[in-house]
Design a protein around this nucleic acid. Structure first.
Lengths: 107, 107
DNA sequence: AATTAATATCGTAATATTGCGATATATAAA
DNA sequence: TTTATATATCGCAATATTACGATATTAATT
């Protein structure tokens, strides 16, 4: 992101920006949609599905895990990634609060 | 953003990512909140308020205008930026659709 | 224990973003 | 028409992001 001066912004502004940053990538959108579509999900399927190299997918999954948006359960040799629904709803609420509050007083 | 392979994703995924990208910066969040708070808004006030240099603010405003999230009206020597409410609601709907659809089938 | 399969980490090249000083542009005021 | 004020654009340095090959790690299978 270059040199963002996060010190001069408040926690809510930095947190929102951090959430948006993780979502600001079509591969991660695609991964989330793919995980959402499956009942359960296996990482190697994601690699086949998305069309990016395995290390790249792994890195994207790490970013999504960093936001606690998904969690991976070990299933033998494989990993079963799932959408973390509580966090998903929490973030949706955060974004809606931002959208609603910002437009509330507006001209 | 480095070399994002947008060709391999669909329009909806790229559009969502582009929207999130513009929002993924605390200065732009702060600008939107500030514009939302005012009844009307003048750019120079934004510079005073946010604490970044004038060219930097100008660039951020350009990004927000690029998404059609705000629009600026010439008011004499000054520019009066306002939230574009229709677009604001449209984007809020897009994001909610993404959140709702993604979690719909999920485990 | 060796092998195989799935995933993570490291290092690096290519590109994008952020922020700002210098400067251009545009408009009102003098 | 000169000056002052507000905003935009250019060019650059610092840093972040994306993608991937090579390699490490982990866990089941043989």
């Amino acid at each position: 992101m270059g040199i963002t001066k996060s010190q001069i912004f408040n926690d809510q502004q930095n947190e929102l920006a951090a959430i948006f940053r993780v979502l600001a990538n079509p591969a991660r959108i695609a991964i989330l949609e793919f995980i959402g579509d499956q009942q359960a999900c296996i990482c190697n399927d994601i690699v086949d599905q998305i069309g990016l190299a395995q290390p790249t997918i792994s890195q994207h999954l790490k970013e999504l895990k960093g936001l606690d948006l998904i969690s991976g359960e070990v299933a033998g040799k494989k990993l079963c990634y799932c959408l973390n629904l509580d966090r998903w709803n929490e973030i949706q609420d955060l974004l809606n609060t931002f959208f609603n509050q910002t437009k509330a007083n507006c001209c």
